[in-house]
Design a binder for these strands. Structure first.
Lengths: 335, 335
DNA sequence: ATGAAAGCGCTAACAA
DNA sequence: TTGTTAGCGCTTTCAT
């Protein structure tokens, strides 16, 4: 194995000079830098990660804790993870993958062993058992999602309340007067995941504000549940002309169910989803939607973390404003 | 920060004794072990990962390289990743996530800096540019998938050829005489990903062997493509009564397309998929299928890697035998 | 602008 | 069964 002393000898300088040339933490004469770089290339030198971590107390590794349970749309998690890895690399960091299963002990372990410098925690619950731990940990963290009590923590997410509201506004502007929200599976509400409730709040508040009739319906993430939901909505709310869906796997089945029941989308019924743009675009009838910007959230989370590692100030809360794209599933009421 | 010398002092032993108590690499008297454990708990000691890696030249971290491109079913990748993380933890290892994008340089980086002890590479192509590198790297690796030339490498995957064959056999035993394979998107074949071609080979070979008429059709992973495919199959192959689908996003849309075209599934047309059991089970009509056992592949890959790290022998090739479960989409020909 | 040298916290020979 | 000690390869003060 080639080490820094080998490079130093080869370049005719001291090890510390090589180190400084690498880190840029002190000025190096152009000539010296050239020689060092040449030696590094020639010898194929790679600094030993462990030695570096030990000497500098920086591992240049971030932990990413991903969820893995019902009601979570897998592609969203995956896209998020990929964007975290990609952004982290741009900041010269790597990403260690942890599952929710590891729990608090897992977080403590990677933080206390100095395996990672900082943590990104996905799928934060309203009252998340990990919050007290994250507050006391000596390493910075960023949460995806907003717990009930976020003081002292750094959180980022799509502004789901505004997203729910934007959907209603869109429908209202198209003249719709009676709307329904088809939401996440009941389990998601039960475990108090903030985003599901926030959508509901934003949806209901916007509907009330504009004097629309509105109802909210959690829904299992299966085609069968979508079919049942469509039937029920038409039965119980004959006036219904606008539907907001916040449940990825159900968006397409729901539209198909409505069509099977004889409704034209968007002529008789407008549907707007809160889902990844990709899903909305690829549907047979492209779906009007508010984007769930996983990639952007990932990138921003990493940037926040980097600022924290540099001891710069960061906002406690970052709410990404919703972006609604009208596609082919919404139309003015009455055709 | 509590360090090993603190624990040693507190327990009245030497640092090496603490180290050995932790690693189990030499016998420790019951009494001493007790005291050490008590001290560790009392002081909240956690060994520093970097220091450990430096002293032992073992980081206890595995690299997992995941693919991220068209034609790859995201939930399969995700489930695989989760199972790798879970299994790795059972062997006291963590997992560093790398994307395919990082390419060979990424592999070299994490290996040469000793950031990881070993690597798992997903989505290996028939002629994969990373193979020569993996062969020369000083760290063990396991590939998911089989390249054209696998000598000197350790590979594992579902036996996709046998899977294709098992589907045909199932249909043949039900009396079907004319079958079609709806496969992965053309892009997957073009980039020479082994599994797509292996399914085709196994499918065709089994059909020929049993004297069935068979055709093969790559298919884009969209509902629209599924619809077009269904129409085309019925038009071009009126005798068709059995379909094998190896393209997750298309399975359900294809069944629906056939039904829209007036065919009953399974009475008029049997459909068997190669896909995760989860997908097959959750369909409105549970789908007969050969399981793509991502979780098992992940677990097995980690076990292979652990054996290699322990310098034990491992087979170069591990082909998991297909497991076909008959559900509600296959039936004897002619009802 | 550069060098010398003292650690960083741990493991594993070597010694007893 | 346990202790002593020399590194592991790097960063970073302190000097010059």
């Amino acid at each position: 194995m080639v080490k820094i002393t080998d490079v130093a000898r080869h370049a005719g300088v001291s090890p510390s000079t090589v180190s400084y040339a690498l880190s840029g933490k002190r000025p190096i004469s152009e000539d010296t830098r050239q020689r060092i770089e040449a030696s590094i290339r020639e010898l194929g030198y790679r600094p030993h990660a462990g030695a570096r971590a030990l000497a500098s107390s920086r591992s240049n590794v971030l932990a990413l804790v991903i969820p893995f349970r019902t009601g979570i749309h897998v592609p969203v998690v995956m896209q998020f993870a990929v964007s975290v890895v990609t952004s982290a690399r741009q900041h010269d960091h790597d990403v260690l993958l942890l599952t929710q299963e590891e729990g608090e002990e897992g977080l403590r372990r990677v933080a206390d062993t100095a395996l990672v410098d900082a943590l990104i925690v996905m799928d934060v619950q309203l009252r998340d058992a990990r919050l007290p731990l994250l507050r006391t940990l000596d390493r910075p963290s960023v949460l995806i999602g907003f717990p009930a009590e976020a003081a002292g923590l750094t959180c980022i997410d799509l502004d789901f309340a505004a997203a729910g509201g934007a959907c209603v506004t869109h429908l209202a502007e198209l003249g719709h007067r009676c709307v329904a929200l088809v939401g996440s599976p009941p389990a998601v509400y039960l475990r108090q995941t903030g985003f599901a409730q926030r959508v509901t709040q934003g949806f209901t508040a916007a509907a009330d504000e504009r004097g629309l009739t509105s109802t909210v319906h959690p829904c299992e993430a299966t085609p069968a549940a979508a079919q049942a939901m469509a039937e029920r909505l038409l039965r119980e709310h004959p006036e219904l002309t606008g539907v907001v869906v916040h449940n990825e796997p159900v968006v397409q089945p729901l539209i198909e169910a409505f069509r099977r029941l004889g409704l034209r989308v968007p002529e008789d019924l407008s549907v707007v989803a809160i889902c990844p743009d990709e899903l909305a675009e690829q549907a047979p009838t492209p779906i009007s939607s508010v984007a769930v910007p996983s990639a952007e959230v990932g990138t921003r989370a990493v940037e926040l973390l980097m600022r924290k590692l540099d001891r710069l100030d960061v906002p406690e809360a970052t709410l990404l404003p919703p972006r609604l794209t009208r596609r082919a599933t919404t139309a003015p009421r009455g055709g």
